[in-house]
Design a protein around this nucleic acid. Sequence first.
DNA 1: TTGCCAACCGGGCTGTCGGTCCGGATCGCA
DNA 2: TGCGATCCGGACCGACAGCCCGGTTGGCAA
Lengths: 200, 200
Amino acid sequence: MTRAERSDAARNRAAVLAAADELFATVPEPARLSMDDVAAAAGVGKGTLFRAFGNRAGLLQALWQRRYEPLRYAIESGPPPLGPETDPRQRIAAILDAILVVKLDNRHLTLAVEERSGGTSLYEQPQYQLVHQLLCDLVRAAGGGGDSELLAHLLLAAVRADLLNHLASRRGISRRRLRAALASAVDLVLEAADASPPSD
Amino acid sequence: MTRAERSDAARNRAAVLAAADELFATVPEPARLSMDDVAAAAGVGKGTLFRAFGNRAGLLQALWQRRYEPLRYAIESGPPPLGPETDPRQRIAAILDAILVVKLDNRHLTLAVEERSGGTSLYEQPQYQLVHQLLCDLVRAAGGGGDSELLAHLLLAAVRADLLNHLASRRGISRRRLRAALASAVDLVLEAADASPPSD
DNA sequence: TTGCCAACCGGGCTGTCGGTCCGGATCGCA
DNA sequence: TGCGATCCGGACCGACAGCCCGGTTGGCAA
């Protein structure tokens, strides 16, 4: 049984989240943003920061979760095209498009979140595994005859933060073009998967 | 004009390459392999190591280049299916398959190479840009009607080192299954791109 | 063979950063 | 108002990339 958080702890936690959010939005290179920076910006000691979030990854997870929460909810129990009542193929496209947009809107943060740090890679994060599992099911439901598990990984590889960041920030490719290309690619893969029946 | 390397420098350079190759092949977590470790294993001072390769990224590049060289040569001027005389669509498949295999055979090394370190991401490496450019051209030549530049990025995203490492090492997925899934995915994308004529 | 100097060697040193620690302050309940 | 559990904060630690510089060595010229 975890006891309720003391009021000062809650206050500090909120201050850290706010300051970190602000920092990640403005800083040019998220990897260069140190925990000391965050603590200083939040007007809080480093110890406080680490007690509240465990480690850097924990802080990043907390930040990302707040950003991702609305989308997660929309996918789990919202109306079409994200919600469960949608045709699988359209839902896959809608979900990937939504993820693309959220990641673009939070480039630096997602970049930091997906950064390999410690021993944990992107693929071990529960966030990733959840989406992957969902996509797996949807691909199967959409009649994909191939290796749905790996295909789901490939779909998600298309919206990796560093790729998006490179294309959008470094190369200056417009959001519209990115969305169009992703939609087209997804469409092609699923369309074709549907056209060719399972071989065994 | 760069002067020729002194013989002791060449010897040390070779010792470092050999030792590092060995280390990256055996170590479980390449990110944990420090420059001190490499220097010690090579029986060389750290200063020597940094003078020879500039920084960690330089060492990794040198190691990777040696591994990648044969493939690069085969692609640039070898016989089919990798060489220039191949039908574009088959060549794309062959190149991606070959890259997949090389990366699987040098998991830890490629993992370290593609690790984002300093300010440079995978997408800024000349190695990547070369392959990307080639794939671009091939996709166009294969009659892809869509955004060939972005499509080439998506194809390469399918063989990212951390994805492969996760699937092969962590999840224990067989090489055969990986190759089959990749081939199938590539085929689907190109097949479909070919079937649907350019929209504008 | 010898002398000379530029190139090279090596490992100690620095700066940075994630993470820990613990004495002191604070909260909240009785 | 008293008291203990909880929390605060910044000094501290270990790890690591990269720099520095006094000492050494290779290789050319005389």
